[in-house]
Structures are given as structure tokens and as C-alpha cells.
């Protein structure tokens, strides 16, 4: 079943001589439960693509459908609500709210929705992410790996339709990297969580179901591994 579809996405930054074509007519679709890796040289448009898929940036042209919903046809507030319910974003630099503790950061999308926190799911996540004894620590009291685990928790808390990760291990040592990847794979295999992960690390890419290779704002190769 198709869960995510990009249609003729283009993104142009700047104007005239300074114009940068970050994405040029990118189209592809992702099946539910698929683990997709995006690779490519720096500046090839990977992050731009991911941000557009997650609804945090708008394409210059083209459309994104998530679960059949035309993402950018929504009004701004609908888009915000869409983001917190349907998209889980993970970044290289974690992007946690510095004044909120671990539990608050993880439950942020739920609380922002004005909903009750599902205690069982929270406990489950804290255990899985090995953050049980860090519940009330602030981000600056945590190591990089721990902060990244918190941001994974935040991305997963709402059971989003898709989790998008932009070089989630780019800032971690290999031991922590592998741990983070195992966690992502776990939620992919265990809960059928659809995953799109940007990575520079070939060994990580090879663990995915499918690898998209980008170059100059275009998809050069699209290989299904398993």
C-alpha cells in the first residue's frame, strides 16, 4: 500500500544569478512499512526533499501526498496539526526544546494537540529508548546519543504515518550510531513504521529496504534491496 507520494517536486532558492535549483522534478512513492535510505553528495538536495516531505518547507512546484492527503493544499494551521499527528522528524542536531525535560520533549506533539498522554506508550518508549532513569533531565544534561534517543521518542510518540530522519547519526560515534539505527529498525520491523532516512553512511544505507541516490537535485538511482 502506498503511504507517501512525491509528484514533480521542485525547489528553487534565490533569484536570477543567485538561483539554486535544490530539487528538480523529483517524483517517487513509498510503500507503507518501507525503510527508505536517501544518499548522495552534500548539496544534492536531500535535506530539502526531506523537509518538503515533512511539511516544514514548501516546494516551489509539485505535490506531496501523505496517506492520500495533498499536504500543501492544507491551510497553515491544518498543516501544523498535520505535522504533529502524521510526521515524526529526527535531525542530526536533535532539535530538542532546551527548557523541557526528557518526558516533556517526548510528549510535546501530544500535549500540543491538547490530548492526554498515553502513559503506557510513553513508558514503553522510555524503556525501549533506555531513557527510564533520565526522565527529568534537560537536554543539556544528556549525551548526544541520549538526546538523539529523545528526539526519536518525540518522533514516534504520536505513531505518525511516516518518520523522516536527516542524518540522525551524523553527529554520533559508531557505537551510538549503531544503537540509534537498531532503534529505528526496531520500530520499522516491530510496528511497521514507515521510515525515510538520509545518511552518509553506506553501512546504514545497506540496511534499508530501498536506496534513493540523489545528485544535483534529482534522483539518480532508485534501488530496492529487499
Amino acid at each position: 500500500m502506498e503511504i507517501l507520494r512525491a509528484e514533480h517536486l521542485s525547489k528553487i532558492y534565490g533569484q536570477g544569478e543567485n538561483q539554486v535549483r535544490a530539487l528538480e522534478d523529483v517524483s517517487f512513492s513509498v510503500e507503507k512499512g518501507q525503510f527508505v535510505a536517501i544518499v548522495g553528495p552534500s548539496g544534492s538536495g536531500k535535506s530539502t526533499l526531506l523537509h518538503i516531505l515533512g511539511g516544514v518547507d514548501r516546494p516551489t512546484r509539485g505535490k506531496v501526498y501523505l496517506q492520500g492527503q495533498d499536504v500543501f493544499a492544507q491551510k497553515e494551521d491544518q498543516l501544523a496539526i498535520f505535522r504533529r499527528r502524521q510526521v515524526g522528524l529526527i535531525y542530526q542536531f536533535y532539535n530538542l526544546i532546551p527548557v523541557l525535560d526528557v518526558v516533556e520533549n517526548i510528549t510535546l506533539p501530544v500535549l500540543m494537540d491538547g490530548r492526554q498522554v498515553n502513559r503506557a506508550r510513553l513508558e514503553d518508549l522510555l524503556t525501549t529508548l533506555n531513557l527510564k532513569d533520565r526522565e527529568h533531565h534537560l537536554p543539556n544534561q544528556l549525551s548526544g546519543g541520549q538526546q538523539q534517543r529523545v528526539s526519536i521518542g518525540r518522533a514516534l510518540m504520536n505513531s505518525p504515518a511516516v518518520v523522516l530522519a536527516d542524518e540522525p547519526t551524523g553527529n554520533l560515534d559508531s557505537r551510538n550510531s549503531q544503537e540509534i539505527l537498531e532503534l529505528l529498525k526496531l520500530c520499522n520491523t516491530q510496528y511497521g513504521q514507515t521510515l525515510v532516512v538520509i545518511t552518509h553512511d553506506e553501512s546504514i544505507a545497506l540496511q534499508a529496504d530501498r536506496i534513493l541516490t540523489m545528485e544535483d537535485g534529482k534522483i539518480r538511482r532508485d534501488e530496492v534491496i529487499r
Binding site: G54, E76, A80, R83, R84, M112
Partner: peptide, 15 residues
């Protein structure tokens, strides 16, 4: 930065 982050995890304008 925080406002942007909050928006990226789905804070509405009104919030």
C-alpha cells in the same frame, strides 16, 4: 529557533 522548532513539531500560529 524555539518558535521554529515548536512549529516544526506542529504548534499552530494561534498557539
Amino acid at each position: 529557533k524555539q518558535f521554529g522548532l515548536l512549529r516544526s513539531v506542529g504548534a499552530t500560529n494561534a498557539q
